[in-house]
Computed example of a mutant assay.
Amino acid sequence: MRLTGRAWPEFFDTYERSAFRLETLPVYAMHDEQDEFRRFLAGERPPPDLHYTWLDRVAKFRATGRTIGRVHVLTRPLTDYIRYEFDWAYAFNVQAGEDIRILDVTDSPEHPLLSAGDFWMLDEKHVVSLQYREDGTQIGRELLTDPDIAKYVALRDLALAGAVPFEDYRTA
């Protein structure tokens, strides 16, 4: 089932215990980030009080005892987009309570997670596959019917086993 418009956040916000995202792309072409990304490329730092809706949602999830996290699988050198994401998003998401980890597979170019595809797994029972064009533009979110949950749990566990907390990666 395709999740479009308000159906996506409404479905997502109903998770009960845990939400996990696997990110595998070097660039995400998000329309609402274009201005900030240009500012980043021009050398501008994010304002210390930067605020966006996702931070409120993360804080709400955490306040109700739910966990939320992601692992971004990447290779060096970091793309401009990932460097932007680190400064203008991840740093703030972590402060709001999101557990963000980085899995650097530069020395493992055939790492299986590089071809796993992006997804959200909710409560270890729902999987939403995220589809993108080559340029990182999202073209769909598909709630999988009858997903092989063991496969997605194994992908999550593989990602978490080798990943380091965002702040540790950033300061290394």
Rank of each mutant, 00 (worst) to 15 (best):
T79W: 08
P109C: 12
R62W: 08
L50W: 03
R57G: 04
A59Q: 14
R62L: 12
L74P: 04
H111V: 05
N93T: 06
K125P: 01
G117N: 08
Q95H: 00
S108Y: 01
L55H: 08
L50G: 07
L113T: 06
D87Q: 15
D104L: 07
T106F: 11
H72Y: 03
A63C: 02
P46Q: 14
D56F: 12
F86P: 02
R62M: 04
H111S: 01
A89C: 09
P46R: 11
R70I: 06
A96V: 07
L122T: 07
A89G: 00
E124R: 14
W88V: 00
R101W: 10
R45P: 02
H111F: 10
L50E: 09
L122Q: 12
H126R: 05
K125S: 08
G69C: 10
R70N: 02
L74Q: 08
D107S: 14
F86Y: 11
L113A: 05
D104W: 12
D104E: 06
Y84A: 05
I82Q: 04
A116V: 02
R62D: 06
P112V: 10
G65Y: 08
H111R: 04
I100S: 00
Y90K: 00
H111T: 03
R76I: 07
G65N: 12
W88M: 09
G97Y: 11
V73Q: 13
D107N: 14
T79S: 15
T64S: 14
R70G: 06
G65V: 04
E110R: 13
D49F: 07
V71T: 15
